[in-house]
Design a protein around this nucleic acid. Structure first.
Length: 559
RNA sequence: UGGGGGAUUGUGUAAUGGUAGCACGGCAGAUUCUGGAUCUGCUUGUGAGGGUUCGAAUCCUUCUCCCCCAGCCA
């Protein structure tokens, strides 16, 4: 074998298994429950499982762990498939559902009963809880524990045939009520739920529990390494126990790793769903959400997410990754690929007094200084322009390089302009229009005499500019670890979304399509939102994916 | 006070008996037609004590702290 690809302890185990010939082909799986949308934490697991399959020429199955029809929906199955594909992974022909195995699982359960390894328990849920004991007190055996196999077989069949109500009885493994591992105290294997299943419809009214279904699904698919998160560590003895009792095709090895946490957001599907339900966000794909669909709408790229997942590492230590790291990788990716555009978010009118009225010059503007192959475009320059309100100050503080009375700046790709006079609102004192002169010898944005200007501003031509709505996003929560907050809905930062209407963008953006990404020069990366409309009802909406690093903001903070 | 895991700099992660490295963040500077990007330098770390060893993040030992488990959820 060539160079080791082992970047983490799981790959190290796999390489060892390959070396020892324990396995010749590596088969992993990504097993989501279709009860919510995928988030960045799932992306870590997807990149791990599919990444391992790719690295070792194996394969990775997509398997829906659909054993609880009361919580699962088709909508989630569709979104999960879409998200995995969008992230850039392909399960080929290997799309499976735990529900596809219900028949086989039932047979395995019968085998367990026949071998006196499982029994039907009539205890109520409350009684089962009492009998289970506590962390420090051992449990006690159910009075139904020693029913003969024949009786259990009959009862289990009748459970399946719908003779009993929900909760009347369950099938339990017969293991050890005094085990220090709670999972081994005769865990429930099957429960009655007279709920139609989104795939098997009314075929079943008993459904297997995770612990029974998961190991068997893995074994039936020939999974070699069953990678899951830390909380299942305690379940591994049960995973192994079940497979040891039954004539299964193989016995996969379960390996646990720490799930991903990211600062300033949450990963709990339940809490994310609560935000959606309580309308604290616009939906699962709200651009502030850490969901894959939210990140996609926000303008993140699959490449950036994959790079992030590859770089955060895989270990068993509980940790919280700084959101700044995710932002770093999207900036890194978009810096290379996003075409630069000019957009004025908070417009301030500028009149170039010595520029001929009605004249329009079409100036060259490079699309991306990082990549000359992206070419250039033409930008209209006229006597009346708009610049960013923040780019002008009547009485600027030290280190302010932008426009102020008497000062000269460069308009990107255009001319040097000097501020001559300011028109102010008599009531507020706020600048409403500034008058400038331009130096016609600085066309293109540079001067032959070599004089320097410290500031460069972006701008749009007033008669050509297009109106747009721009949505600025910030951390969903201002606290670094919102998972610890009592009321998650209340904790949403009201300033996590700022809607700016009346923004002005350059005319080249007229045909922008939802999903298109660009950099608004000096401001950040933006993506066209799905709320945008073409045609008569023309509407342009941009989502801010990420800001640019902002040194000036830091200087201001310190002042 | 049962069982299972874990602890390396601000954050994340390497180093498996031989110079504690990398990335992000932060700070300083260079450079720049984006206060972007790029480049350079810096950045109080092996949870604590004892032991083995020429040499310990790594091995032994005692302790401390953190996470998970008592669903007919996954």
């Amino acid at each position: 074998m060539e160079e080791s690809l082992a970047r983490d302890f799981i790959r190290a185990i796999i390489e060892e298994d390959l070396k020892n010939k324990t396995h010749e082909e590596i088969i992993t799986r990504f097993p989501p429950e279709p009860n919510g949308y995928l988030h960045i934490g799932h992306a870590k697991s997807i990149c791990l499982n599919f990444g391992i399959a790719r690295d070792y020429n194996g394969r990775c199955h997509l398997r829906f762990d659909d054993t609880d029809p009361s919580k699962e929906e088709i909508e989630y199955i569709e979104s999960i498939k879409e998200d995995v594909k969008w992230l850039g992974f392909d399960w080929g022909d290997h799309l499976y559902y735990a529900s596809d195995y219900f028949e086989k699982m039932y047979e395995y359960a019968v085998l367990l009963i026949t071998g006196n390894k499982a029994y039907v328990d009539d205890l109520s849920p409350e009684q089962i809880r009492e009998y289970r004991g506590t962390l420090t007190r051992t449990g006690k055996e159910s009075p139904y524990r020693n029913r003969p196999a024949s009786e259990n077989l009959d009862l289990f069949r009748r459970m399946k045939d719908g003779e009993f109500d929900d909760g009347a009885c369950v099938l339990r493994a017969k293991i050890d009520m005094s085990s220090p591992n709670m999972n081994m105290r005769d865990p429930t294997l099957y429960r009655i739920k007279k709920v139609p299943h989104h795939r098997t419809k009314d075929r079943w009214c008993i459904y297997p529990m995770y612990d029974f279904a998961h190991c068997l699904s893995d074994a039936m698919e020939g999974i070699t390494h069953s990678i899951c998160t830390l909380e299942f560590e305690d379940h591994r003895p049960l995973y192994d126990w079940i497979l040891d009792q039954l004539p299964v095709p193989c016995h996969p090895r379960q390996i646990e790793f720490a799930r991903l946490n990211v600062s300033h957001t949450i990963m709990s599907k339940r809490k994310l769903g609560l935000l959606v339900e309580k309308k604290a966000v616009s939906g699962w794909d709200d651009p502030r959400m850490p969901t894959i669909s939210g990140l996609r709408r926000r303008g993140f790229t699959p490449e950036a997410i994959r790079t992030f997942c590859d770089r955060i590492g895989v270990a068993k230590t509980n940790s919280v990754v700084d959101l700044a790291l995710l932002e770093h990788y999207i900036r890194e990716d978009l810096n290379k690929r996003a075409p630069r555009m000019m957009a004025v978010l908070s417009p301030l009118k500028v009149v170039i007094d010595n520029y001929q009225e009605d004249k329009v010059e079409w100036l060259d503007a490079e699309n991306n200084p990082e990549d000359p192959a992206m070419g250039s475009r033409k930008l209209p320059f006229t006597r009346e322009l708009f610049i960013e309100r923040d780019d002008f100050m009547e009485d600027p503080p030290p280190k302010y390089f932008r426009l102020a009375p008497g000062r000269e700046i460069r308009l990107k790709h255009a001319y040097y302009i000097r501020c001559e006079t300011v028109e102010k609102d008599p009531k507020t004192g706020e600048a409403v229009e500034i008058h400038c002169t331009y130096d016609e010898k600085t066309r293109g944005g540079w001067s032959e005499d070599g004089r320097k200007v410290r500031g460069t501003s972006h701008w749009v031509s007033a008669p050509h500019a297009l109106r747009a709505e721009v949505r600025l996003y910030d951390h969903l929560f201002c606290v670094p670890n919102p998972a610890e907050e009592k009321d998650i809905v209340q904790s949403v930062d009201p300033e996590s979304l700022t809607v700016l209407d009346g923004c002005l963008v350059e005319p080249g953006l007229a045909d922008a399509k939802p999903g298109d990404t660009c950099q608004f020069l000096r401001q950040g990366y933006f993506s066209v939102d799905a709320d945008s409309k073409a045609g008569v009802k023309k509407r342009l909406v941009f989502n801010r994916t990420a800001t640019l690093r902002d040194t000036w903001a830091k200087i201001q903070k310190k002042q």
